[in-house]
Design a protein around this nucleic acid. Structure first.
Length: 951
RNA sequence: GCAGAGGUACCCGAGUUGGUCAAAGGGGCCGGACUUAAGCUCCGGUGCAUAGUGCUUCGCAGGUUCAAAUCCUGCCCUCUGCACCA
């Protein structure tokens, strides 16, 4: 068969589409499988990362269809967002047009790869028939009390001209453009995600996310249990509330530290000699970006504020400081400082000569007065407590005791603190879902009534390069609207929603994508989303953002009775990175653009070596999918991607490996052609091949079901072929067997290389389209084990003979032309069977083995005694490094021995094959004793390990 | 510093309920068959030793065991995330 990948692939893609092969409907009689890839942003062309993502998903979707599942496998685009807006500015167009141009382009790329999406469910979030539901759901959230408008310090990115959510700021930089963000006070829309903090955290225990993703979410939510403790300011009505996770150290408090921004600072020191010092510190802190501040913080600085606070439990007066290491936004912005048991406080106290007091010892009986050279921040019994009843208490009971006294006396309480903040939803940008709210002078902020939705983005907006801000603000007919309540002319909200909002529920919209009456029908969502999306595949970069928002959203809609399920994603697979070689300087530990290959390091001049690095535009080490498809075809690219590494593992791009996989395609075709051309000609090896088919298919199903795609592909695209080749080498050429082989094998090819598989299926006259075919159970035959073991026995003999042959060559003078194989004497096989039988009965070989063998009739033969004993030991006990054979023989070998396999017969009937394999003219086989003992090999002969001598 | 994942032969990468593990598979390399030749395809080899059960090897060092890539302890290194979060 000629292989024209381009022709074959496009032909079958059309056939699948024409026959609606991938269209899925709710069918409660069938088990469903919802396969989903993380929502792509349509950035023009598909890159290799996409190819990897979708090739994994498509293989799984196709596999599950063949397993008889009702598979939902949709595709759509997360098409709101800044790149389109910026592109529109550049070309003087509208983001709507840019977006749709990009969508057709990436969709064409995906279609060319042959992905089996149900395209009827296609959606783009920037289309009004999607985002109107964003608005509808916003009103719903508003009703549930989850929407809040408030003034808060927010992260502002000047380059993107908008605020950012906490999750979207990394190292004080914008996640999209990398520019440093600044703090601003602004009135903004928030979603009260913190209402779900506990559930978001606790449910992590029950979902099968990868550990690193769970860890990141746990970190992000950052729940800590502790106490809120009020410290009165001496000689004032003011109170400093401090959060601590270590109430058990309360008696060790020797000062209080406020963040310089804390509102009490000014009040405490205003007009005193201490005011200047505080202002200086405050200036220094606000001048620095948060990022700098963290870096500078190796140096702890603080100023005394001139006042004292009172420890509510001991009544002790302690000085109040402002310190640069206290974060204003966490807890209350005030810390009770316990230098004896917190390293930061310890360092601070050392620097400013403050008291360091020990109130915990490491273990019972330690000296309570022992000097501390570093803070002891572990748990241990309380000592030196200023009040009775606390000394000796440890850990949780110590904390509990302190908290209960605080609560009794009204000076504090147990509390929980989260790092998670509410989701800042509004963006000051055009290309997003308009927030359906109206600002009325009289009525305040009024939601747009549901019947007035959608609030549409105007299409008559001109975008230009030098434009600043949000063009909605100056769009007259958009902004100026009557108030829905009083009818007065009012201003429409011009902020749009964060695009993460769009992707927080799209997986539910896919279940019912064309619904024009509601976001989705509950029945459809409950069917497809039962247990969550069955397989969700995407990158680790969304571990905190998208995956947290979507979880929150699903819980919120659940609580609004829109769906049953509370966790959107069942199994989550984060695909590994795609790497490619880049020039690398080991001295500078830096990678450079591929233009530097073969040159010297631009900064130190050393010769550059090469190292694999994440594919990126900046390094230029990307590979274009289009080019690869044009050169090798989609099937080869898919095969390479899936076989190169398991989905979660990182993977290195390699041109030679890709070529290797392309060659494998030819090997596959060659195997198919040879199988197609066979006539009826049964032989013994047929049953071996059938057994191999069953075994391979079993492990293939297991591997695939478990998303171990590399392992699955290894079986389907490599092992099946090796077996087929072995079959042919062993003289197999039966048309019926070949046709059974193809019926089993060709479907296995479909998940990774669907086009060639479909082509085979049609050539072999398979029923209908392979894409819609459901595989039968492969079943196993009870005699498979023995059939396979017998063949393996032959292969083992060949392989040990080969090893010996090279050595034999060195010892022989006239060259080698024959081999003598002596199989084990009958008494050895008898002994083997005897030992296996005893083992089954639980016989204690160590205690009774020796006496047992001595009691056997065969033992009376004195000349054999030594060998009998050796054989017995080899069978039952083994040596120091090797256990007895009865413990190491695989099931199949045991069954061969028990069945009384006639080894000599098996080998002689394959004498010609052995002669060819060992490259000799003559093979003679006989059991020990029935012929000459050549080279003394009789003694070596063991059951299943005959003695072999070359001549 | 905290947390998560890792370190396997030239490279990638399986294997971690201890024994069937000198360790699958692929790439690369070497050799052979086919071929006018290249390509494709097929076969074999790829730690050392050796007419067979031997030696050394799975980050380093110890330990448990009749037996360790696999279990335990300590250490080193790499990647990822979080970070003076009280």
């Amino acid at each position: 068969m000629d292989y024209d990948a381009q022709e074959i692939e496009t032909r079958w893609q059309k056939a699948w589409s024409d026959s609606k092969a991938f269209e899925a409907e709710v069918d409660s009689t069938k088990e469903k499988f919802y396969c989903l890839e993380m929502f792509p942003y349509p950035s023009g062309h598909m890159h290799m990362g996409h190819v990897r993502n979708y090739s994994i998903g498509d293989a799984m979707a196709r596999f599950q269809r063949m397993m008889g599942r009702n598979v939902l496998y949709p595709m759509g685009y997360d098409s709101f967002g800044m790149p389109a807006e910026n592109a529109a500015k550049k070309e003087g167009g509208h983001p709507h047009n840019v977006t749709h141009r990009n969508i057709s382009s990436i969709r064409a790329d995906q279609e060319r790869m042959g992905y089996s999406y149900d395209w009827r469910r296609f959606l783009a979030t920037s289309d009004v028939d999607y985002y109107r539901w964003n608005q509808e759901m916003f009103l719903t959230l508003n009703e549930s009390g989850l929407v809040e408008r408030r003034t808060a310090p927010v992260n502002w990115c000047t380059d993107c001209d908008t605020v950012l959510a906490n999750e979207q700021v990394k190292n004080n930089r914008c996640w999209r453009c990398g520019l440093e963000v600044v703090q601003r006070d602004m009135s903004q829309w928030f979603l009260r995600m913190t209402d779900y903090s506990d559930e978001l955290l606790d449910e992590l225990e029950n979902i099968s996310f990868p550990e690193n993703v769970k860890a990141m979410q746990r970190n992000w939510i950052g729940r800590s249990h502790g106490a809120h403790i009020d410290f009165k300011i001496d000689g004032s009505e003011s109170v400093v509330g401090a959060f601590t996770t270590r109430p058990d150290t309360i008696f060790g408090v020797t000062f209080i530290t406020l963040s310089p921004e804390h509102e009490l600072c000014e009040e405490l020191c205003a007009g005193t000699e201490w005011e200047d010092g505080w202002r200086e510190l405050l200036d220094e802190c606000t001048r620095m970006s948060e990022f700098e501040r963290i870096n500078m913080l190796k140096e702890k600085k603080g100023v005394f504020l001139g006042r004292y606070a009172v420890n509510p439990l001991s009544g002790e007066r302690v000085p109040v400081y402002a310190g640069n290491f206290v974060v204003a936004s966490y807890g209350t912005g005030a810390v009770m400082a316990v230098p004896g048991h917190d390293q930061r406080d310890f360092d601070f106290a050392k620097r400013y000569g403050l008291e360091i007091r020990r109130v915990l010892v490491e273990s019972e009986g330690d000296d309570p007065e022992a000097e501390l050279s570093v803070a002891f921040d572990g748990y241990g019994p309380m000592v030196n407590s200023a009040r009775d009843g606390f000394d000796g208490l440890t850990g949780d009971s110590a904390k509990g005791a302190v908290i209960s006294v605080l609560e009794d006396e009204g000076t504090g309480h147990g509390t929980v603190q989260y790092r998670l903040k509410d989701w800042l939803l509004s963006r000051q940008r055009f290309w997003g879902t308009p927030i359906p709210m109206i600002h009325c002078q009289k009525c305040g902020i009024v939601p747009v009534p549901s019947e007035d939705l959608p609030v549409e983005l105007p299409l008559d907006v001109k975008f230009t390069e030098d434009q600043k801000g949000n063009p909605l603000e100056s769009h007259d007919s958009f902004v100026n609207v009557p108030c829905p309540t009083c009818g007065e002319m009012s201003k429409r909200e011009t902020d749009t929603m964060d695009t993460f909002y769009d992707s927080s529920w799209y997986f539910m919209r896919f279940c019912d994508a064309n619904n024009d009456e509601s976001p989705f029908n509950r029945e459809a969502v409950d069917y497809w989303m039962d247990g969550g999306v069955d397989l969700y595949i995407g990158g680790i970069e969304h571990a905190v953002m998208h995956l947290l928002y979507a979880r929150f959203f699903t819980k919120a809609t659940r609580d609004h009775s829109m769906n049953e399920v509370g966790e959107p994603f069942g199994r989550l697979v984060c695909q590994g990175m795609l790497n490619a070689p880049a020039p690398f300087c080991s001295d500078c530990n830096t990678e450079y653009h591929i233009d530097h290959f073969g040159g010297d390091c631009p900064s130190c001049g050393l010769t550059l070596s090469s190292r694999s690095a994440k594919m990126s535009k900046s390094l230029g080490n990307t590979v274009s999918p289009e080019e690869m498809i044009a050169k090798y075809g989609a099937d080869t690219v898919r095969l390479f991607i899936l076989f190169g590494a398991n989905p979660e593992a990182g993977m290195d791009w390699s041109d030679s490996a890709l070529e290797g996989n392309h060659r494998q395609m030819f090997a596959i075709i060659e195997a198919f052609d040879s199988a197609q051309s066979m006539q009826e000609n049964p032989s013994e090896i047929d049953e071996w091949l059938r057994a191999r088919i069953r075994v391979n298919q079993d492990s293939w199903r297991d591997a695939m079901a478990n998303v171990s795609l590399r392992e699955g592909v290894m079986i389907s695209h490599f092992e099946m072929i090796s077996d087929w080749n072995w079959y042919r080498r062993r003289g197999g050429s039966d048309g019926n067997t070949a046709s059974d082989f193809l019926r089993a094998w060709v479907p296995m090819l479909a998940p990774a290389t669907p086009h060639i598989a479909e082509e085979f299926w049609s050539q072999m006259g398979g029923d209908g389209l392979l894409a819609m075919h459901v595989m039968e159970e492969s079943g196993t035959a009870s005699e498979d084990i023995q059939v396979l073991a017998r063949e393996r026995y032959l292969r083992n003999v060949i392989s040990s003979a080969r090893n010996l042959r090279s050595m034999a060559e060195k010892h022989s003078h006239g060259g080698i032309n024959s081999v003598v194989i002596q199989t084990a004497a009958k008494w050895k096989s008898d002994l083997a069977r005897e030992s296996l039988r005893l083992d089954l009965e639980g016989f204690d070989f160590k205690a009774n083995g020796q006496s047992h063998v001595q009691s056997l009739p065969i033992f009376e033969n004195e000349t054999l005694r030594g060998e009998i004993f050796q054989t017995w030991m080899a069978l039952t006990v083994g040596s120091k490094k090797k256990r007895g054979r009865i413990h190491t023989w695989p099931e199949g070998d045991i069954s061969l021995i028990n069945s009384g396999l006639n080894e000599a017969e098996v080998l002689s009937s394959n004498a010609q094959f052995l002669a060819d394999a060992l490259d000799v003219e003559l093979v003679s086989v006989y059991p020990v004793g029935e012929g000459e003992d050549v080279a003394g090999k009789a003694r070596v002969a063991f059951p299943l390990e005959p003695g072999i001598a070359f001549q």
